[in-house]
């Protein structure tokens, strides 16, 4: 099977500041990958290149086709993106926002059809936001809003889901809910999932493969116990931690050693 996403010698620079350097990465179909790294290590940039918002130097292939060969409309059926935060200056209801995920599936001159409404409803059910479908997005809490954005992404019926710190503004319960939902989508629908993550412990619990970036380069790529070691955390983040195996899940968990 062809890899869902493949990059070869990918580099990217904002003006003269190089953000990504020579990244070669292959994401298989149906894989679930967490991208780790400190602020400014290139996680967000990498995701933006995958979704063709930014153009990097080097090759990016999706399902064995060059990314340049896709139209925006086709890309939006292949990929859905959940951004770090989404601004909303206009009063749209939750249902309207979720239906926007269907824009590439119906004619730009038509209203949404029956199929679009069904898909939107199913996505809202899955993310547990059907109960407030008629409320305005700007009235919702951060956690509710994020679930709506994920519902919109699911309404796109994507093969690949890209998430940029999907749990950044969520409390612990909602963080865990989001990650459990991602695992379900991955397992039950075979959706390929690539997420940039900050919380290393949650990443270790839920993601079977982790890619650690440092200064725009891939520093480690492998299972949680290969990537999250005391040595790599010290080298990448510059802090001292103690890594222990969680005895139930069998995943490494980090404990911070403070000098105080």
């Amino acid at each position: 099977m062809n890899p869902a996403i493949e990059t070869r010698n990918l580099s990217f620079a904002y003006k003269d500041r190089e953000v990504l350097h020579d990244v070669s990465l292959s994401v298989e179909q149906g894989e679930m990958i967490g991208i780790l790294g400190p602020n400014g290590s290139g996680k967000t940039t990498l995701l933006k290149i995958f979704s063709a918002v930014l153009n990097g130097q080097g090759e990016v292939r999706l399902n064995d086709r060059d990314i340049e060969a896709y139209s925006r409309r086709d890309l939006s059926k292949l990929f859905a993106v959940v951004a770090q935060e989404s601004s909303m200056n206009f009063p749209y209801t939750v249902a309207e926002v979720v239906l926007m995920g269907r824009a590439s599936y119906h004619s730009p001159f038509a209203l949404e059809g029956k199929k679009d409404l069904e898909v939107a409803r199913a996505s809202m059910e899955l993310t547990d936001c059907l109960s407030f479908a008629n409320r305005y997005l700007h009235e919702l809490s951060g956690g509710e809003k994020q679930r709506v954005i994920i519902a919109r992404a699911l309404a796109q019926e994507p093969e690949i889901l890209l998430l940029d710190e999907p749990s950044a503004f969520l409390d612990l319960k909602h963080q865990v809910q989001v990650f459990e939902l991602l695992c379900r989508l991955n397992r039950e629908r075979g959706m390929t999932i690539v997420a940039a993550l900050h919380d290393l412990n949650l990443a270790a619990l839920f993601f079977p493969r982790l890619v650690m970036l440092r200064e725009g380069k891939i520093y480690r790529d492998g299972s949680p116990s290969e990537v999250l070691t005391e040595k790599t955390i010290d080298e990448v983040y510059g802090i001292r931690v103690r890594v222990e195996q969680d005895c139930v899940a069998g995943k490494p968990q980090l404990f911070i050693c403070s000098a105080l």
Partner: peptide
């Protein structure tokens, strides 16, 4: 409708 979400979100939802 889509561009009100911001340029990046609109791109990702299929708008040129």
């Amino acid at each position: 409708n889509l561009i009100t979400l911001g340029e990046e979100a609109a791109l990702q939802l299929g708008v040129e």
